[in-house]
Design a binder for these strands. Structure first.
Length: 424
RNA sequence: GGAGGGGUGGCAGAGUGGUUGAAUGCGGCGGUCUCGAAAACCGUUUUGCGGGCAUCCCCCGUAACGAGGGUUCGAAUCCCUCCUCCUCCGCCA
């Protein structure tokens, strides 16, 4: 969430930023709600001050036995309280309205985020490798998987519903191999690994910006909990309501979890295969940093995600998302897109974002640096996929497929597959 | 699931209705002393919001003692609900 004081004092700049993101917030409503709230608070606190002063004298009057005067003062406070009660209601109303408006506002884009309206305006930063060339007609992973007997789409529908996946035999093992390879690789590069709940409460989902605006994207339980759409939610909220020591920053965390997404509104998109499903595995990276270093940390995080693709030998490109395409909480986002022969193009496999203080303000994540400043400041949070496991499997199957329908395995995965070098 | 006992400032720990945002101790920070350090001594030590001043410094007000509601002129202190921790019993991967 944005700082409403900052919004008030930088109205035009914020307005421009919102429009660059295609977010049509109501500037005038903000101004009037903010003014109303401050007026009510002013009046309310004046009355509270009067009440406190009068109450104090009541105690003294009663000690000195001046019952009559005390009763008169009590009556006076009662009438003040009646006014306070009404103003409290007004304040709650004003704050709720302002809160709803501000909570619906996305983060301000970084200066370095390219301006643009849609994904067509994203900027390619670099590519690694080149699109895989075949001297036969390559198959899509949704054909390869069933043919090899390692992905069972039909039974997954029977067990759950469409857009769920059932892996069999070496497919299930490959899933585990990819997870372990990714988690081990990040851990070796300094990321502390966590294992976390995959159900979160409303405060947790609010902290990362998933609630209240994107509730429809989440699976909910009957007791008011939510299945996490990504481990980012848990890793970021680990330090909710905490003050971190600047000397400990940056913190580099990672975790493997299943991820659950309703995919409301994406019916008809990527309907086949492993690309867009309700449940998938992901190894996630999260960082906590100071404002001074967070953008450098973002570059480092992208490099760590790229490292996985390079070790797997999968061609990819890095793009910088434009203002119109970055996510709600992000100030700057790089997407890694892996080459997918079935799409004859690149497909997102990782998204790395600097959320600056946007999540930290919601989640109350601060840090202290006694030598540099008094008090506390909001930390910056970053998150990135490292990587989406299902899409990685799809990319491996498609890019490593052989003419005979078998699939070679990337060398780095062989130890995780118990020495198996080929499926099929 | 049953019974009982707790949740106070970075930590420990007082405080059962009236200048208590909160004693005391520890820790932290600043200073005195010292060649330096330790010890000792002195001072200081939360955050949100509103306003002033101003621009990272201070002042005023207000709110916050797990969360929310209630009683009262006034609540950390009394009542209710919820959350959570601990102990014992039961159940269980």
């Amino acid at each position: 969430m944005l700082d409403s004081k900052f919004v008030r004092e930088n109205l035009e700049a914020v307005d421009a930023a919102m429009r660059s993101r295609g977010n049509f917030w109501d500037k005038d409503e903000f101004v009037s709600l903010d003014a109303a709230r401050r007026r009510v608070i002013g009046e309310l606190e004046t009355l509270q001050s009067q009440r406190n002063a009068t109450s104090k004298t009541i105690g003294e009057l009663m000690k000195t036995g001046l019952q009559q005067e005390a009763e008169a003062a009590k009556e006076q406070v009662r009438s003040i309280n009646a006014q306070i009660e009404q103003l409290e209601a007004e304040r709650a109303e004003a704050e709720n309205a302002l809160d709803a408006l501000v909570m619906a506002m996305p983060n301000l884009p970084s200066d370095t985020t390219p301006y643009g309206q849609s994904e067509n305006d994203n900027v390619e930063i670099r590519t690694w490798g080149s699109p895989t060339v075949f001297d036969f007609a390559p198959k899509a992973h949704w054909d390869l998987g069933p043919e090899l007997g390692i992905i069972d789409f039909e039974r997954a529908v029977k067990l759950a519903k469409s857009r769920f996946i059932l892996l069999a035999g070496l497919g299930a093992r490959l899933e585990r191999a990819i997870i372990n390879f990714m988690a081990d690789t990040h851990a070796a590069r300094g990321y502390k690994e966590w294992w976390c709940p995959i159900l979160g409460n409303a405060d947790t989902l609010t902290g990362t910006g998933n609630l209240p605006k994107f509730e429809d994207d989440l699976f909910k339980t009957t007791n008011g909990m939510y299945l996490i759409p990504t481990a980012e939610v848990m890793l970021t909220n680990i330090h909710r309501d905490e003050v971190l020591d600047a000397a400990a920053l940056p913190l580099h965390y990672c975790a493997f979890t299943p991820c659950f997404r309703e995919e409301a509104g994406s019916a008809g998109r990527d309907t086949r295969g492993l690309i867009r499903v309700h449940q998938f595995d992901k190894v996630e990276m999260v960082k906590f940093a100071t404002p001074e270093t967070s953008f450098d940390e973002l570059e480092g995080m992208v490099a760590d995600a790229e490292n996985i693709l390079q070790l797997l030998g999968l061609p990819y490109r890095v793009i910088s998302l434009c203002t119109g395409d970055i996510g709600f909480s992000a100030a700057k986002t790089y997407d890694l897109e892996v080459w997918l022969p079935s799409y004859n193009g690149y497909k997102e496999i990782s998204s790395c974002s600097n959320c600056t203080d946007f999540q930290a303000r919601r989640a109350n994540i601060k840090y202290r640096d006694a030598a540099a400043f008094k008090g506390t400041r909001l930390a910056h949070t970053l998150n990135g996929s490292g990587l989406a496991v299902g899409r990685t499997m799809a990319a491996i199957l498609e890019n490593y497929q052989q003419e005979d329908g078998s699939v070679l395995l990337p060398e780095v995965l062989v130890p995780y597959m118990g020495g198996i070098t080929r499926i099929g």
